[in-house]
Amino acid sequence: MDPNASSIPATARAATATVKLRLTRVTKVFESGGQRVEALQPIDLEVSEGEFVVLFGPSGCGKSTLLNMIAGFEEPTSGEITLEGQPVTEPGSDRLMLFQEHALFPWLRVIDNVTYGLRWEPGYRFRPRRRREKAMELLRLVHLEEFAKSPVHELSGGMKQRVALARALAPDPKVLLVDEPFPALDALVRAKLYTELQDILVRTRKTIVSVTHDPREAACLGDRVIVFTGRPGSIKAELTVELPRPRDINDPKVAECAGIIAKQLEEENNETIPGEKI
């Protein structure tokens, strides 16, 4: 790994578990109108099975670009991304992305949204009843089983995001990618969703990579927080959060941890703009 990346040693679990996702010298350069904009300097990252890794950094630091490349929406300019040793080439349900907005299909009922991705999964092809059973199981997990037959537009924002989570879990992705989860929801609903997400995590042992610019969210959700610096993006630090789960976003310990995470970026600011702050 990048020698200056790790400020706190990784947990024993992360060190011994098998590597699920591996990024090797991944870079991204955008070209627009003859201008080359370097979005990401070479990134090395390993994500172990069952680990929740949060990519944290200011907006424009390339963390979302990195997530898009893992999902297969964008291609790295150089370097390689592998999932269980297989190179990533295109989007697919083994690296399923959960978006900022729920992105549910309005032409389908709640249950049909959840079964949608199963249609092309081995073991579920041409087996609608099995798909439905799996979907109901997941709707129970997010406590929405009584809304299975509702059209999507009748649900509240928080409920839609929970359906989106159930839909994303249905094809049993090897890695779940989460792009700034739940920013459009009010604080109360968000706190509840964090708790639920962690609860589901503990139960399903999903490997998750998520992106955020909110240090509290990073502290509340992550096993490991990767701190990114601004343009061009690179890994500035790597922190392990060892608070017990489920974590409450309003817990002082989470807040303290969030402070440490946020501090990483302040130091960065002091370096780039010397003498402006103490």
Binding site: S93, F105, L177
Partner: peptide, 27 residues
Amino acid sequence: PLYLRAARTLGTPGYAMPLRVILPAAL
């Protein structure tokens, strides 16, 4: 574009896109 991205990350094969996603989304 979000619908198309969601469809692709959910593993929709190219041949299924017109009937499953494009036509309903354009309804």
